[in-house]
Amino acid sequence: MKKNRAAAAFRGIPWWLVLLVGLGTISLGTALADASYRVIFGAVAKGFVVTLTVAVVSYAVSLMLGLLLGLARSSRLRPLREASTFYIELVRGLPMLVILYYIAFVGAPAMAGILNGLLAPLIRAGVMLPLESRSFSFATRAVLALTLGYAAFIAEIFRAGIESVDKGQIEAAYALGMSPTQTMIRVVLPQAIRNVLPALANEFIAIIKDSALVSVLGVQDITQIGKVYAASTFKFFETYNVVAFFYLCLTVSLSMLVRALESRLRRETIR
């Protein structure tokens, strides 16, 4: 009996996590003991804030944009539905890297042109100078690109959530005299969002990883700093160890949170 329980407890241990935490501790230990590691650590840490800022800002804006797109996608109005489907299919059909290049080198000049057109009277009056594509920093362009890309993924998640809500409840709301808008806000969305909370959280993990793409624009995130450092010192192994360590700290802890959230939601549904 006792042996069985011990065996069960042994099996219950999440070994993948033990291994990850072990490796993390070892690399942190070496990093603190080894002087050159300490330098790499300090350098790459500066990119940590940039990575986190890029991810958080892109995610927050794409949540809002994605909700609007998702609502349009499940709208009764055909033009809204078609327009949002067009956008979602277009963006989902492109590699994120291509979107990034496109926004950075085609979108930004185009935007500068459009804004100059709109603000032409002010420019002529000498109130302001014409914008150039340089006016948009590469970090801004990177955030814009990630936002536009992730809005499409998040829109599909919201749409799935909206469709997951029991149609009977929607009819009941109509039968009580509620308008379609009231029904959406009071009945559908609260349940839809709850249903897709884990999926939305996973998108945040994905956006952290994809934020490494902004390094191709020279934005000083974890990856870019690591790349430059490794190229100048030839310490590839040590540098990319540290780069991976930073990403894993973020992603693994977040994915644990998502698991906890999922099991909590499941418990509440069963009860």
Binding site: D166, G168, Q169, E171, A172, A173, Y174, A175, L176, G177, R186, V187, P190, Q191, R194
Partner: peptide
């Protein structure tokens, strides 16, 4: 109209949240 004629459904359709 719907204020005047209330409806009760086979599957209850209470708001689950």
């Amino acid at each position: 109209i719907r204020e005047d004629a209330g409806m009760v459904f086979q599957s209850f359709n209470l708001f689950a949240h």
